[in-house]
Design a protein around this nucleic acid. Structure first.
Lengths: 212, 212
DNA sequence: GTCTATAGGCCGATAGAC
DNA sequence: GTCTATCGGCCTATAGAC
């Protein structure tokens, strides 16, 4: 019981430090993160930051891993949902979820260890997206002929990134039209896919494929 | 002659400071820019930075204005070229030209005066792009029915931004396919437009329009 | 316009007591 | 795990001599 209590407190302190770091990064940018500022926001002494995380790079890495685990989980949920493309789009344009990522990308430009972590994460997520999009575009000849799943993944991520960064600097020209455009496109794919499913249900299983 | 000489030297010092700032921002990020670092790279005393530019925010603003003027000029050239969409795309995926922009966007997240300058610049450039794309898509019913010029502007900027940031962190999955996709799409528009011009040339001027 | 000198402040990180 | 104390460093910015 005593040990449990202690572990809880340790985790609580670590979490407080990570959350304070996240808050500062979101509100003032990564450059405003210092052991003293973090400690001040968390209501602690700055030395505790070093005690629990070592160097500032270690702190950034720990926060990135925590944020990435959460993002990866949300991504997984999106990919297995009933309308995965729509869910992926919703996730991609969510400023709350993406704000930190932008700061980490900026940080990555001159901290090599952060850069590597982000690169790994991006590949993991890209792989998941491409697998989902490949399934979603299966049999949709009209769209998949002009745009492969991996390209579509780049287009979705890029367009969402553009909308988020523009919103962050206070520009929202063309955003409503872009959102409507995305909605229309996703709607078309969804309708095509549900029509495909209906057709498949009316036949014996496997009849519309050569293998599997 | 003496005055000329002096003005040249002043401009030379200012330019040296701005160029040093740009170099540091590109190579190490905006957070690495300090009056001392700038002066060191430019081979000057740090106090000269304050003498010529005042505060660090003033220095950042001056550099942004210089970079934006150059970017705006390149943009103008692209828009009036014979293949404006292709030229715009080439400009948008040019890492050399866009690297600074990314740093300024990160800087803008917590420096309000920078944010406003970037917002203004973005609107100016967006306006120019939309005007060009409106002309380019005129009469191209197939494409303009599904994607308005302002939406296309967002898609181009977003996709290019995505490619550039991914390249910066060392990920290039799907880049070749995305570039090929863009090339194919631009090619289609170009062919459609030159066919349109040919048709127009075979008729009396103004015959294919209701007004003007 | 450039110099020296300096004020005043925040930074990362560590040592050692408890 | 948390505290006090502290080292050495880089920062912005200004004052005043030349």
């Amino acid at each position: 019981m005593r040990t449990k209590r202690k572990e809880e407190e340790i985790t609580k302190t670590r979490d407080a430090i990570l959350s304070a770091t996240e808050k500062i990064m979101r509100e003032e940018g990564y450059a405003a993160v210092s052991s003293r500022r973090v400690a001040s926001v968390a209501g602690l002494k700055s030395q505790l930051v070093h005690y629990h995380f070592g160097t500032m790079d270690d702190l950034f890495l720990a926060l990135f891993r925590r944020a990435e685990a959460e993002y990866f989980e949300r991504h997984t949920q999106a990919v297995i949902s009933s309308n995965p493309i729509r869910a992926l789009w919703a996730l991609s344009i969510d400023r709350q979820g993406m704000g930190l990522i932008f700061e980490f990308m900026a940080l990555a430009n001159h901290r090599d260890i952060i850069r590597k972590q982000i690169a790994e994460s991006k590949i993991r997520i890209r792989t998941m997206q491409v697998a989902m999009l490949t399934r979603a575009l299966e049999g949709n000849d009209a769209l998949s002929d002009i745009c492969a799943p991996n390209v579509l993944s780049v287009l979705i991520a890029g367009t969402a990134l553009q909308l988020i960064t523009e919103t962050a600097i206070g520009v929202s020209d063309a955003h409503a039209d872009t959102l409507a455009f995305a909605d229309r496109l996703i709607g078309m794919i969804e309708r095509e896919n549900s029509a495909k499913k209906t057709r498949a249900r009316k036949r014996p299983a496997g009849a519309n494929k050569l293998s599997a």
